[in-house]
Design a protein around this nucleic acid. Structure first.
Lengths: 163, 163
DNA sequence: GATTAATAGATGCATGTGCATGTATCTAAA
DNA sequence: TTTAGATACATGCACATGCATCTATTAATC
């Protein structure tokens, strides 16, 4: 190695892994304890609930952290569970339009009771004000530019940080 | 929900997941491209190389992000590959002392060429100076107190941040 | 010292994930 | 319009992970 990463770089890499693991494990454990599906399901349900007119599967794929084959299977399970419907896309016969069902909405609301509380207890209560914006900007800087899907959310968070 | 998480909290949660996924994927993809084992193997090899006199398996478990059964199997594979040896512990006949082999050291050194470069390109080059300490402290605040194993590393990173 | 609890580690099983590939459909170029 | 390539989604397979459980051994309690 011509140039070695410095201690701060190492700390970021180590902490990113540990923090993600610990926080994720807590989320999954609490959801499971409440006999609810995983956080990934919540994210899908919430994305579909916001999309009033349904959403193409490939669009959802680009917004989620699932890769295509994995999303395909997950959606299948959610359809089997009656949480989501899959209709042929009108404009493209290859495609499918996904819609959340009433059962899906009900489950999402139920999950939010746990999920939202976890966001408060595991994140909002823990990160000191002084480091919130550094954490947000620092994490954002690690993400490739093309991930622009989250710019809106990021900007509103930046606004909040300035208050 | 009595109280809703604010936008910054949401941003942290979303960004933590995306950043972790993207950075991890890049690491794994580059290691695979170089026909090298995963980053998790690097961490084990490095921990064992630092432990001059070998290391008990449960001690390694508490330092790594593996849970016990998974570490057990991973070590087995590494032993099969000749990277690590597993000797009965002298003081506790249940236990095993792990040691890295010369082949293991050679592989770790080879992996470092890729791994270290990735830390530079994916982290050090990307996080602006202004957000380094906020990112470190913010991530650290998400981790339960009992995770003290990393305090040393964290402190030296803090020192670096003050320069 | 016998019994009970706790710990170190291994193994079985169900599930999740990444990756390669398959099929159908759409788009574009010859 | 035929054909080559790209895109949407599904499927098969190898492997990783989480969780429950098993065995062997040590520590603690009576």
């Amino acid at each position: 190695m011509d140039k070695k990463p410095n201690d701060q770089t190492t700390a970021i890499w180590v902490l990113l892994n540990i923090a993600h693991k610990r926080v994720t494990q807590t989320f999954e454990a609490e959801l499971k304890r409440a006999r609810l599906p995983s956080a990934a399901w919540y994210d899908i349900l919430w994305a579909l609930e916001r999309a009033k007119d349904g959403m193409r599967q490939n669009q959802l794929e680009s917004q989620s952290l699932f890769d295509q084959p994995n999303l395909s299977r997950t959606i299948k399970r959610m359809v089997d569970d009656g949480l989501v419907t899959q209709c042929p896309a009108p404009s493209d016969r290859r495609g499918r339009v996904l819609r959340i069902t009433d059962d899906g909405k009900a489950l999402r609301a139920q999950m939010w009771e746990v999920y939202g509380r976890l966001m408060l207890s595991q994140i909002e209560d823990k990160v000191p004000d002084a480091h919130i914006s550094g954490l947000i900007e620092g994490l954002a800087s690690l993400i490739p530019e093309k991930d622009e899907k989250l710019q809106g959310k990021l900007n509103s968070a930046r606004d909040g940080a300035e208050n």
